[in-house]
Design a binder for these strands. Structure first.
Length: 686
DNA sequence: TTTCCCAAGCTTTTT
DNA sequence: GCTTGGGAAA
């Protein structure tokens, strides 16, 4: 029988200093309860726009003010962007005292733990982090080596294998089950897939390679098997704050549990109606399992929405109640009045883009800054047409969720050289670098990688090596650049410059059509390296927090005014905007065509739409093109998203677009039944 | 073994 | 449209 011992307050202790922040006046009752909560486990259920971020920010400040050492507070979030934002806000309300609070993604946190304890789990301290495509490349090398690609029936491709293994780690399920659930057509290859996985795990360990999943998994392994380390790490995080708990997967929930081992001061915040990472193993049921995991957990709720007007919330409420799995949510706002959200039927994609750009300009005229408006969409390709239009009209924008700088082939090439310097056993990097040389293909690269990564003293030794004259000069040139950089400690900037000087001719040869554009990216890259501290953290931060390619260009275009935001719905999570445009609201896009088979994934698409709608504060436009271009079919009549179709007109007002000077109305398609005389109209001058 | 060319297949969301 | 796999020439 466990006993409880009550520690009495120390009467002699000086009274706590007065709090600098007047919490009661800045927070509502529910928020205040969460902010001033004592230690122990808490589950905070917070609907969209109810001040979740605000609550976390004040909680951090409150803890610091009441004497918790800032570095013992850990704020775990989903993106580095939101962690930074929260910590900046906390620091600003508390005159910088929150500066040393630790915050970041699960992955980044795990990285710091692993860097410190790498040897304990058989990893070299200079291990490299693989992004998803590097990870797939490792798998591909082994897949080819084992000749699985030669079989009679189709074997999964590298990317598919990567997803299979990743799902198995994140959901803590055997590969067998992942195959049965998601890839039944590959069940015939089960043994080969399992065998390949063993080889793959072995290969990664041998070459000091760690993928995103490994960061989580190794940390959980380390903390659950090593009591000393667990207690030490847990003690160093006296207060755990976890944002977006509905998007954690089993592994992450387990990690939190281990981190809270010593003190159980863990506050998780989330909204089950906003869970949108099922594809990555997230399970919104985690949030309901929390009280089972922590039987003494207290449940707090934030219910009042401060973000949006009631008409916007009415649409959100209407939408979410269509879910098969019902949510106990009904958002209400203090802002009763507001514009009715619009459902814009554009004749085609061009019209939709013109509508958005014109409306953006009009609203800017009315005084709304560009940076307070956002265009959201399901997949990053959905905004291509709009991007062209914005470019033509000279409207600056940043796009989140598109191509990342570090995903561009030429940047990956340069990163590969750096990775070799960091970890000379990094076989993926070697492979990439070697295959850039004329005369070296997959086979030769493999052979060279073997001898280069097994020689402990000097990877660049050529004596007794079975090289061929076909490529030896090129190889010597490569080694000639890398060897001095590896031997002598120089600055990161110098390394990057030396590498780019060497790489430039190769770049010119490989991409002669658009090589100046790529060279420009590399110039940006040098700039980043100049700001980066050391090579190791530069590489890992690029892997864990890749830089949006358009962000760099947008800064170049205009640095006076914050640009318009273009973002996938996923990347817009947790953010809010004065005006939101949701474009391409089509059946097959949102909900995505892939989700139609399963009720559960269909629900997730619905939650995604819910997230998009609840980003808006004042104006919301949902638009879709009536004619859609489809690759093999040409122009096709599309179906508006089933989620917004048939929303009563008093909630979502139909708009139609009329060409200026045109006599006749554009084809109002009878099937949609939307364009009638009561519709609002927007004019599109040329 | 590399490299070049052509056909076929796939194509969401992210750390 | 872009990657991947196969086949053939160098």
């Amino acid at each position: 029988m466990a006993r409880r011992f009550i520690l009495k307050a120390n009467k002699d202790k000086p009274a706590p200093k007065e709090l600098t922040i007047d919490y009661a006046s800045q927070l509502n009752e529910q928020q205040l309860a969460a902010v001033m909560a004592a230690g122990g486990p808490y589950l905070v259920i917070a609907g969209a726009g109810t001040g979740k971020t605000r609550t976390l920010v004040y909680r951090v400040a409150y803890l610091v003010e009441t004497g918790v050492a800032p570095e013992q507070i850990i704020l775990l979030t989903f993106t580095r962007r939101s962690a930074n934002e929260m910590l900046t806000r906390a620091s600003s309300i508390l005159d910088g005292r929150c500066n040393r609070v630790r915050g970041g993604t699960f992955h980044a946190f795990c990285l710091t733990v692993l860097k410190e304890h790498a040897p304990l789990i058989g990893l070299p301290a200079n291990f490299t982090i693989l992004d998803a495509s590097d990870d797939a490349d490792v798998i591909d090398v082994l897949r080819t080596a084992k000749r699985y690609n030669k079989g009679a029936s189709r074997f999964p491709r590298k990317g598919t294998l990567q997803s299979i293994y990743s799902a198995s780690v994140n959901r803590e399920l055997p590969v067998e089950e992942v195959l049965a659930n998601q890839y039944p057509h590959f069940l015939g290859h089960m043994e080969a897939i399992q065998d390949l996985q063993i080889a793959y795990e072995e290969y990664k360990k041998q070459h000091g390679l760690v993928n995103f999943d490994d960061l989580l998994r190794y940390t959980v392994d380390l903390l659950s098997t090593n009591d000393t380390v667990r207690q030490r790490v847990s003690t160093s995080c006296r207060h755990l704050l976890v944002d977006e708990y509905q998007d954690t997967n089993r592994l992450q929930a387990e990690l939190i549990y281990l981190l809270a081992d010593v003190h159980r001061n863990v506050m998780v915040v989330g909204d089950d109606a906003q869970s949108i990472y099922r594809f990555r193993g997230a399970d919104f049921r985690n949030i309901f399992a929390f009280p089972d995991q922590y039987p003494d957990a207290q449940i707090l709720k934030l219910e009042q929405n401060y973000r949006s007007t009631q008409p916007i919330l009415d649409v959100a409420n209407y939408v979410i109640q269509r879910a098969k799995h019902k949510y106990d949510k009904h958002l209400f706002s203090t802002l009763k009045e507001g514009e009715l959200p619009g459902l814009v039927a554009a004749p085609d994609e061009r019209f939709e883009s013109r509508f958005v750009s014109q409306m953006v300009l009009q609203l800017r005229e009315e005084g709304i800054p560009l940076g307070r408006m956002a265009v959201l969409f399901r997949g990053s390709a959905n905004s291509f047409d709009l991007e062209v239009e914005l470019g033509e009209r000279g409207i600056p924008y940043v796009k989140y969720g598109g191509m990342k700088l570090s995903e561009a082939a030429h940047v990956k090439d340069v990163l590969a050289y750096l990775r070799i310097l960091e970890n000379p056993k990094d076989a993926v990097a070697w492979n990439r670098v070697l295959q850039l040389l004329p005369g070296i293909g997959p086979k030769t690269a493999q052979d060279i990688v073997t001898w280069v990564t097994t020689d402990a003293d000097d990877p660049f030794a050529l004596e007794n090596r079975p090289f061929s004259p076909r490529y030896i000069e090129a190889l010597k040139a490569l080694f000639g650049v890398l060897r001095p950089l590896l031997k002598e400690a120089t600055s990161l900037t110098h390394e990057v410059e030396a590498i780019i000087t060497y790489y430039e001719p190769l770049l010119k040869q490989k991409y002669f059509e658009d090589y100046p554009k790529r060279l420009q990216d590399l110039e940006h890259f040098i700039g980043l390296a100049e700001n980066g501290s050391d090579r190791s953290s530069f590489l890992s931060s690029l892997a864990l927090d890749p830089i949006e390619l358009t962000a760099l260009n947008a800064v170049a275009i205009d640095d006076d005014e914050a640009p318009l935001i273009l973002s996938t719905i996923h990347s817009a999570k947790g953010l809010e905007f004065q005006t939101v445009f949701l474009i391409h609201a089509l059946d097959g896009i949102i909900p995505s065509g892939y989700s139609l088979k399963e009720e559960e994934s269909l629900d997730e698409e619905l939650r995604l739409l819910y997230v998009a709608v609840t980003r808006a504060e004042r104006n919301l436009f949902i638009s879709y093109p009536v004619l859609q271009y489809r690759r093999h079919h040409g122009e096709v009549l599309s179906k508006p998203s089933r989620f917004v179709d048939n929303v009563p007109q008093h909630l979502l007002e139909p708009w139609s677009l009329i060409e200026e000077h045109a006599e006749s109305q554009p084809d109002s398609d009878a099937k949609t039944g939307k364009t009638d005389n009561s519709s609002d109209e927007a004019f599109l001058p040329f």
